[in-house]
Every structure is written in C-alpha cells, then in structure tokens.
Amino acid sequence: MDRGTRITFLAMVALLVAAPYVLYPVFLMKVLCFALFACAFNLLVGYVGLLSFGHAAFFGSAGYVTAYTVKMWGLPPELGILLGAVTGAALGLVIGWLAIRRQGIYFAMITLALSQIVFFYAVQAPWTGGEDGIQSVPRGHLFGVVDLQRPLGMYYTVLALFLAGFLLVYRIIHSPFGQVLKAIRENEPRTVSLGYETDRYKLLAFVLSAMLAGVAGGTKSLVFQLASLTDVQWQMSGEVVLMTLVGGLGTIFGPVVGAAVIVTMQNYLAEFGSWVTIIQGFIFVVCVLTFRRGIVGEIMGRFGPKGAAPTGGGH
C-alpha cells in the first residue's frame, strides 16, 4: 500500500473499531455487509469492466444457505458463512461461465436474466420458505467461543470479515493477476494478442467476486437472523450498482463510502415508502450525468496524486 492508502485504511479501521460505542451496532453491521458486497461487485465492474446486473443472486442465495444450514442442521456460524461463500462461488462459476461469452451491455442483460432463475427458484423451492423466508436464524457461537448474541461480539466478527474481504480485494487488484484484469478492462483484444487467455481471467474474477458477495450475504442473514426474497431480487442487484457508483467505480474505498451513504439514506427515508425508490433513481441519474467518478473518485481527482483517479468512462 502507498502511504495515502495506508493512512486512509488505518483511519477507517480505527473509526470502525470505535463506531459501535457511538452508533447503533445493527445499523453499522448492515453498512459493513453492504460495503463488503459492494467491494466484491466493484472488483468486477471497476477493475475488469464487467457490469453484472445479477449480483443479488450470489448475495441472496448465500444468505439462504447460511440461514438454512445454521438453523436446520445446527452448523456453527463460521461453517454456515463458509457454505454461503461456497454457494456464491459455485453459482458464480455457472453464471459467469455463461455470461462471459458476451461483452458490454449483453453481459449485463445476461447476468440479470440468469439471476432471475435463482430468484424464481427461491420463490418456489420449499426449503427457502417462500414469502416468509427463513426466520429466527440462531447466531450461535463463533468457533464455539464468541457469543454472537451479544451485539459487540457479532459486530467485531462482521468487522473482521469485512476487513478480510476488503484486504483480499486490495491484494487481488495489486497482484499480477489484477494487472491482467485491468489490462482487459482497458483493451481486451490487445490483452488477448499479448497471449493472455482473457476468458479464464474474467471467469476467475467473476467467481471471486461472487464468493465475496456470498460471504456478505451469509453474514447479513446471521446479523438480521433472516434470509428473505428481498436479497435475491433484481432490485438488490440495482442497489449494489448504485452504492458502487455513488462511492466511485474502480476506487478502493468508493464502495465502502457508497454503501454507508445509501444505507444511511434508506434508514432515514424508510418511513416514506416508495419515495426511497424515486430518490435512488434520481441519484442514479445525477451520478451518471454529472458525477461519474463518484465521491471517492472526485476526492482523488481533486486532491490525490495526478492520474490516481479513474477516468469515469469514455472509450
């Protein structure tokens, strides 16, 4: 990590460690789950240039698997989340394998359509509980030691998972593998001509992203002790796009900031019902028209070193 990133990262950790003494832990955990989800999504859209409109499939189905295995099979939470991650990765392998056959907006439409299969499966399958979802999921004890019923125990577990996921994404982006991903984003035919099998790189990035989305979804189902259809719906795929866009596509901290902004907004506007949708749509429009670099992208563009900020579209 360069100096600026390291300082920002340490400040973020310090803030998040202290936060539950000031703010409501469940709210913070929701932010962290969505921040991890958005980081996973950003790995794909920000660094490979693949816009998935079906990430709710991984997030939501992992939530169901974690909730089901913890509640019905009595698995410990760490195994439940692990199975959620495996579910996300496995689904990511299938959906990614199909979707990388097409580029650009076709990729977006295909991921969206395939995620609808997962959604309708969740509606019809008996074990997902239909409209009710899987309710009162026990949080249990992490490794048999940490009592997750206690808010702080749960909070620091979620924080640890989030930081692990965040650092993993950082590591991936700054590895030789990540360099190839960025090369694909900038110019895929040229990357192919350099001898890289871009499809394999894209698929692996897709699976990693889906796996992390699965970790986020599984964790969220433990935090709220609930897995429901909300998390597999296409609206959820739209929300994670919005969070990443607001924070800044292709920036390390953007998805975290975006998730915090959108979750806070949803919290304050919850009583206004469908106004939330209208305002979210409005933010989409404003971001696309005037604010394409997002919050973090704009800050980096103004104050960061030259060339640090992503360009925000334009081919």
Binding site: G238, L245, I278, F284, V285, V288
Partner: peptide, 8 residues
C-alpha cells in the same frame, strides 16, 4: 445505468 435510474 441512466435508463435504469429513470425506470426507478
């Protein structure tokens, strides 16, 4: 993304 926002 823009037309998605408009649809919402």
């Amino acid at each position: 993304l823009l037309t998605f926002g408009l649809a919402l």
